[in-house]
Write a protein that binds this DNA or RNA. Structure first.
Lengths: 228, 228
DNA sequence: TCAATAGTGTCTGTTAGACATTATGGA
DNA sequence: TCCATAATGTCTAACAGACACTATTGA
């Protein structure tokens, strides 16, 4: 354990660890994933970030940073990776990227704006572009293992919206009947008594995320994503 | 390696990023995943690691570390994550863990030994235990997306051995006929003209990893691993 | 009534899992 | 010969994808 050696932290590196925590807030606008960028120096854009204090904890740092940026902590977050490529606007040698997901429709805080994840501004440092890329890839790769899609949606949503989010994350269209059949079997959502009418057609029923079944393990080995 | 930084227990690195690169070499022995640990100070065990030089690149550092530890670079490697929990034997504030996979049957280099990933020695620092845990979880979670199983095996292997590795990584038994059917459809292996006889039964044909098909995307959304 | 969208029932080809059978060596 | 293990063929239930159909609103 570490209790004893904690005393060693009495004389840790004197100047802060040259390590930053960079926050990638991901949301959705229409058919795009969007990332929250802040105004940086000299008309550049940058990710919200904080230097890690000497002896500081990554999770604590990202929680504090999240509170600063979006006004509240967001429980669900994942580390997207540590990078040294390029240079960091604050001079960090290493940047640790974290992803949080923000419900679509959330307004950007002052001094910040949403940018499409596929069309990042050129003034974004290469380091930060790499972090965003890793974060988006991370989220996409975990679509079927984390409730990412539901975090991108407001608490009540239509099945059409849910399918749109899945199609956005997975990067391909899905078959409507199959999608709903599988969703129903997974018992992840429950209907509400609310309906939403938009434009012409029949109104869509609103659902909420209410997983009722423990995660089921896949039965067989899958080789689909492997290969040459 | 740790020789130079061993002196750190006396006075921590003053300058430079207080960031270490920790290497998790994973291999297989019988029905267990094993991790390569080195002898540390005062009869402890530790992961091979190196302090990141100021301005140094993570990938360069881990490549150099890999050469030092196993005598050669290993092209396939993945970052398992950055952690600050506990304390690092060399005083790093942040440790970035990397995983490489070593073919089973590889002898441990001098001063190191293989340890079962589920029964790590108590003298391993909490920081390093966390890194190992993240690394093993990382590998297991990517079994079906990375050729991890084949890296755990020698160049020629029987289908029974391959299935054993998959069962070890996935943590459950697999159906033999289904496993082979899916493997055949994926065109990942090709038979050799060699056979191996072990004990009583019919000899098993040896195969080699020779992916012939581009990775195929899964067609439908999967909700199996999601939920309550 | 028409157009547009939501939601569902049915059919079919594919596939996973169970089971049985053949193949081939050692004891 | 018997036994143990490899490898494979067949059957069936489950499922994915296609399609068509009904339902319900606004124009």
């Amino acid at each position: 354990m570490s209790g004893r050696s904690r005393s060693r932290a009495v004389s840790p590196p004197r100047r802060g660890a040259a390590c930053s925590v960079d926050l990638v807030c991901i949301s959705r606008e229409a058919a795009s994933l969007v990332v929250l960028l802040q105004h940086g120096a000299r008309r550049t854009w940058r990710l919200p970030s904080a230097m890690l204090r000497a002896g500081g904890d990554l999770e604590d740092a990202v929680a504090a940073l999240t509170r600063t940026v979006v006004g509240r902590d967001i429980a669900w977050r994942q580390q997207a990776g540590a990078v040294t490529a390029g240079s960091h606007p604050d001079g960090a040698a290493v940047s640790v990227g974290y992803v949080v997901i923000v419900s679509s429709g959330t307004a950007a805080p002052p001094g910040a704006a949403w940018h499409g994840s596929g069309e990042l501004p050129r003034s974004l440092a290469a380091r930060h572009s790499a972090v965003v890329g890793a974060a988006v890839a991370h989220v996409r790769a975990r679509t079927d293992q984390s409730p990412v899609a539901f975090r991108l949606l407001p608490p009540m949503f239509t099945l059409g919206e849910l399918q749109e989010v899945y199609e956005l994350l997975l990067g391909r269209t899905l078959h409507k009947a199959s999608f709903r059949r599988a969703l129903s079997a997974a018992r992840l959502v429950e209907p509400t008594d609310k309906w939403r009418s938009e434009g012409r057609g029949r109104p869509a029923q609103l659902f909420r995320y209410a997983p009722r079944r423990r995660a089921r393990v896949a039965r067989t080995a899958r080789f689909d994503l492997l290969g040459g």
